[in-house]
Nucleic acid binder design. Structure first.
Lengths: 207, 207
DNA sequence: TTGAAATATGAATCATAATTCAACTTAGAA
DNA sequence: TTCTAAGTTGAATTATGATTCATATTTCAA
């Protein structure tokens, strides 16, 4: 399903052709992120989104075919933001284990800063399953590549693979929900350190 | 919010008072599990649920105040089923690590058998956040208790706690989604073994 | 400067189900 | 057996918001 357009929100023929149009579409996407984030997909209304964006109701349909399509476009955009944030956290010359710690730490801080993104991507499981799946498959793929590098460098066990990647991702997502969204009682550093300890040493007592 | 009734689906005054009523309510809950599982909350309709249950539309309101309330009741019931299945998997005299392996294995099989349960509980994040949260807080609590026992027995590191519990739960849930719901390409045993390897030894190379 | 293409507007339309309700049937206690 | 509470029925009501569309305004290439 690769697209030939660079704009992730593209939809056949509704691309804005002027700077004004681009600005309006941007305002709609930003307003939608807030509205969907606060209310969830079904409680959110197009009317409220256009009010937030400061445009007329009808303008919405200049840029999107439907409420569903807007949501899809948004999920793909947000998924990309998460991906970029993780990439940014990757310092060169880190050990494979430290890389995972950095990514988790960055993810926790990102989840705290942008709780709405967390919620929207999660809700995509029900509104736009394909995007949801792609989001996590891509993320798992990137973890897997880091693990493979670590294995090649002799830092990690040589048999680490896809299952470990999904396990790490699940860890991260749930820690993000519990300690990023539900409460901020613990520091991101502490959580990342403890979770990283599992990867580094497991949970078995060592003498 | 403890209730004084034993029926998890109770709602003030809509309890069935005869065997016939109980049967009808049961049929509605079973039909709802199928309908919500297949279509999701918003695509599912009360009409379709009553048709599946073989009752009249109006009968629904004899037992539930609303679509939301039905969903809530169902989530609490299903959450309980998951909990019971995990408890069943716990053989006595297992090591702490083996216990986690058994629970994950049981969870994977359960997810495969009852994909609809997996989906409904997930969707509760948006329809009935309180039940969703309780479901996972309870599950984390039970993991934490097992870890504490393992620590007391000297099998696990003495500092294992809540964060490890949430990490393990996240691992399990994501592995359930990826290898239980999305595909069954790998055996439940293999997945449980590999994930358990992370807990037992971490992912770092050992010489 | 100008006019055709883009964009903006919001009242009116339309579709979908959730929920209500008044009439009817059945269960089961006395 | 009888009678009342419990349960059943499905057509009618109602509420909500997504989407359409005819009209007005703005942009910008020529």
């Amino acid at each position: 399903m690769a697209t030939e357009y660079s704009d992730l929100t593209e939809s056949k023929d509704k691309q804005p052709r002027t700077a004004r149009g681009l600005r309006t579409k941007r305002k709609l996407l930003d307003a939608a992120a807030l509205e969907f984030g606060e209310k969830g997909f079904h409680e959110a209304s197009i009317t409220a989104i256009t009010q937030r964006a400061g445009t007329a109701l009808g303008s919405f349909y200049t840029y999107f075919d439907s409420k569903d399509e807007l949501f899809s476009a948004l999920v793909r955009e947000l998924s990309n933001m998460v991906k970029e944030r993780a990439a940014l956290a990757l310092a060169p010359k880190q050990s494979a284990i430290d890389a995972e710690r950095s990514v988790l730490h960055a993810f926790l801080e990102f989840a705290r800063e942008h709780q709405e993104i967390y919620r929207i991507i999660d809700e995509a499981e029900f509104i736009d399953p394909q995007s949801y799946r792609e989001h996590y498959e891509n993320a798992a793929q990137r973890i897997m590549e880091r693990l493979a590098e670590g294995a090649k460098a002799g830092e990690l066990r040589s048999d680490v693979g896809e299952i470990e990647a999904w396990a790490i991702m699940g860890m991260n997502v749930f820690l993000g929900m519990r300690y990023g969204i539900w409460s901020e009682e613990k520091s991101a550093v502490e959580i990342a350190d403890i979770a990283n300890g599992i990867l580094a040493r497991g949970i078995v007592r060592e003498d």
